[in-house]
Amino acid sequence: MLTRLSEATRESEGSKAGALGVLLREGLPVPNGFVVGAARRADFAVGHVLRDAVDRELERMGDPFAAVRSSSMDEDNADASAAGQFESIIGVRGVDNVCQAIEICRQAANAKRVGDYRARMGDASTQELGMATLVQPVIKANVSGVMFTPQEPEGSTRIESSWGLGLSVVGGTITPDTFDLYPGGVIRCEIGSKQNRVDLDHEHGGVITRAVTSDQQLTRTLDDGAVETLAVLGKRIAEVLGQPQDIEWAIQDDIVWILQARPITAALPVLHTLSPPEQVDVLRGVPGSHGMVTATARVVRGPSDFPTVTQGEILICPYTDPAWTPLFAFAAGVITETGGVLSHAAIVAREYGIPAVLGVVGATTRIEDGSRITIDGSAGTVTLRQPDQ
């Protein structure tokens, strides 16, 4: 029914918990917790026996603010990440709230967007997914982010980071700082705007989004020493798990914690230095997913605009969260105003094989709805076309 995370295996507790269990057993810094066994549609509800077991585990952990996350066999795999497709509930406290979060995670296993994603990735099975759920204490981070370990022997370690919890980085709601650490110790840094930060709401539970001061927006979230520490840790994790890894991490009181590790599913575009374009009809952003296409631009500012998107159009949006992913199945490309190459949206775009350019400031106002544009996801450029082009 319940398994300590330090004893979790992929076969019994799903991919996310299984990988973290391996890392814990190897002595790596993973917040310990427990895993609730997989449930199918008939028993999504948390019964009295399971509730009592959860209550005992939370008491053992000191009744912390908890992160409750999915751990399915159908996510965090080498050929399909399912990045952002399932549910994570951050900052719940007390047995009733934690059990409610467990039920939400279980129910998300059969959400329509999950079925659409599975179909796009070639899984034609109609079998219901069993969903284990992972419960860990929230790391009250000052800095968090994502790291991709090198995908080839002479490759770089790519790190994206921002202030507070990592939800803004993986969700693409801010443009993070980006670091590349190359063999030989050379570090390349692009400072992102980082206009907001997400933190634990100690008073009400859950999370709260706050504005970042102008000074902090211009300040690096990681110094060279922290970048090097993360890269060394990433190398060790890749060695333990046997392949390059997509790693979510957080730093609290100068201690690095590993929150997730999964295989990298598609190659990253090369990081380019953002500079003013030489042509007035060219917009620049962060290369998010390889490919080039010319098509009609469709500006989408929220879910109410979803019905306006048709097959083969380029999606222009402020950012994307998991609810937007079904649009990727028939979009020709994706352009966002914020976000980094390691965000969930960029990962899914690479898996779907469509070009993406991220962090194009003012994209939803600078690109005319219905106009013809060319997106180059490898170069990170968007070219505005004249009507006769």
Rank of each mutant, 00 (worst) to 15 (best):
L268S: 12
L274Y: 00
H290W: 06
G291H: 11
L268Q: 06
F306W: 15
P269E: 08
L268T: 12
P303R: 15
G302T: 00
V270Q: 13
G302V: 00
P277D: 01
T265K: 01
M292V: 15
G285K: 03
H272D: 03
V286N: 09
A267G: 07
V299I: 14
V300R: 05
D281N: 15
F306C: 10
V270Y: 08
V270F: 06
R301S: 11
G302E: 00
P277Q: 02
Q279W: 07
P269D: 09
G302Q: 01
P277I: 00
V270D: 12
T273Y: 03
P276E: 09
L271D: 02
R284L: 00
E278V: 06
I264A: 03
P287G: 04
V300F: 04
T294M: 13
H290R: 11
E278S: 10
V293G: 11
P277M: 00
H290G: 08
G291K: 10
D281C: 07
S289V: 05
V280G: 04
P307C: 14
L271A: 14
A297Q: 10
D281G: 04
A267I: 07
R284T: 03
S275C: 04
T294K: 13
A295V: 13
V270S: 14
S289C: 10
D281W: 07
V300I: 15
V286P: 00
G291V: 12
T308G: 11
T273Q: 09
S275F: 04
T296M: 11
G285I: 04
A266K: 08
L271R: 13
R284M: 02
P303Y: 08
V270P: 02
P276I: 10
V300M: 08
T273D: 00
V286Q: 13
L268C: 07
T296P: 07
M292G: 04
A267W: 02
L274H: 01
D305S: 13
S275A: 13
V282M: 03
S304V: 03
D305N: 12
V299W: 09
V286T: 15
V280I: 08
V270K: 15
A266S: 14
P277A: 00
L268E: 03
R284P: 00
G291P: 09
H290N: 08
G288Q: 11
L271V: 09
A297G: 11
M292F: 03
V299S: 12
P276Y: 07
T265E: 02
P287E: 02
F306P: 02
G285Q: 04
V286A: 03
D305W: 14
F306H: 13
H290Q: 15
I264W: 02
V286D: 00
L283R: 09
V299M: 11
I264N: 05
H290E: 13
R284N: 01
T265S: 02
V282P: 02
F306D: 08
G285D: 04
A297K: 10
I264Y: 04
G302S: 10
R301N: 13
P307W: 14
S289Y: 05
V280C: 05
G285V: 03
P303D: 03
Q279R: 12
V299L: 05
F306N: 08
P303Q: 14
A295W: 12
A297V: 06
